[in-house]
Write a protein that binds this DNA or RNA. Sequence first.
DNA 1: CGTGCCATCATGGCCGGACCAATTCTCCCG
DNA 2: CGGGAGAATTGGTCCGGCCATGATGGCACG
Lengths: 235, 235
Amino acid sequence: MPPMTQDSRVAAALRDDILRGQYRCGERLPSERDLAQRFGVHRSTVREAFKRLAQLGVARIAPGGARVAPIDEASLDVVEHLLALDDPPDPDIVDQAIEAISGFRAMAARLGTERATPEQRAYLLDLLVSMRQTELGHAERAELVFALGEAFVEASGNMVLRLMAKGLRMRPEQTRAGYEVFDDPTTRAEAEAQLAALSRAIEAADGALASESTFGLSRLFRLNLRERAQEPHRS
Amino acid sequence: MPPMTQDSRVAAALRDDILRGQYRCGERLPSERDLAQRFGVHRSTVREAFKRLAQLGVARIAPGGARVAPIDEASLDVVEHLLALDDPPDPDIVDQAIEAISGFRAMAARLGTERATPEQRAYLLDLLVSMRQTELGHAERAELVFALGEAFVEASGNMVLRLMAKGLRMRPEQTRAGYEVFDDPTTRAEAEAQLAALSRAIEAADGALASESTFGLSRLFRLNLRERAQEPHRS
DNA sequence: CGTGCCATCATGGCCGGACCAATTCTCCCG
DNA sequence: CGGGAGAATTGGTCCGGCCATGATGGCACG
């Protein structure tokens, strides 16, 4: 869908190389002229790719040579690419992302619950009712969980939150396994309890309770997902 | 400190124009050739600037014309520039940013508290003790508050959290007024209570309590800051 | 008068080459 | 072995040009 231009191709290749750790932090990348020859493009095309890498925060480009930037100078946007690097991605990265998303959802739930209009509140409760239906495939449930997060962000009316959410979206197939918590009777009961608490929180505009129950729910997903990731693949 | 290259100059000018709303969303930006003439640079320089804008997510560049992208396609990194646009910046943006930061700090406090090593826990408690000192200027207090947030993020050991934190840093002078809560006896008592709760949370590795008390503390700052912003300037 | 189609133009994508200043590298000298 | 001068490399910017693709306007037709 995105027009595959040459400069984006080059940028993607270099970005993935960097994120994969092919160049140590601080190490000099090949020169623009070298890369131009290697990729069979003009130097100005490589320069455009470099500008994107610099904006992404993975490279620092300066006279004398472009160098790999320390990871903590990167933009939040790199997370998306880190998760897309391999298939399956590094389970460690996935777990950290899920954990961050759990925390973020708790935060969105709090702010959203405190600010929601009556209509938004009704919609949120609607989503929760849907989620408690017995017969739901993992895909449908994943969609509801996603929609719930988006609804909280929307209800918060906070643009910064929206931008954060954008940087934290994961591909559905990477989270789907988490929803198996609804298959096991024990974990299902706990999930149901958290959903009930979340409903009460929304009705009462209780941000703290919304935050807690959302985090508890996300933790169930996360722990389940981590167990699944540690099992040997059966495909 | 960053070398002021021509392309970064052009990119900054266009970015600020866009963020200031000079171009409506979806509207076509001037052509590369026009801008090159307007800024007195070569077209390839403008192209490099465009690539950065595209990576920032504020412009979508395609054959036929570059267009302004909808705000929610932007990177979290735009927040920094939104806050730097005017002096003083739009109080609405500032308030949303502070709110998001409050939520983020609560989330970091939770994850950090649950994961901290004994050494990190000791350091966190140390910071809290420092913050409860009576004689502290707003600047020193601001530094401590900042350090506390960074310490929680560090303790969480979560890289995604680190990246989020980077996108949420505010300039000290924009938050300093919030620390006046320690001047008023009433709010000071409340702040002290939250700090005490946070200490207990860290000692007990109680993530939920850490989250609550951190959010409560941040809210004090935020409400105070908002009041100050609404007062007429006395400078 | 409205409408759909086609030629034309403008725009971005990319290329080849060039010059400069600053950095980095190399090698020789002390 | 250390240091400094000169050479090579590198990024920053510019020039001018070609191409394919969207945008645009005018013209013929209904």
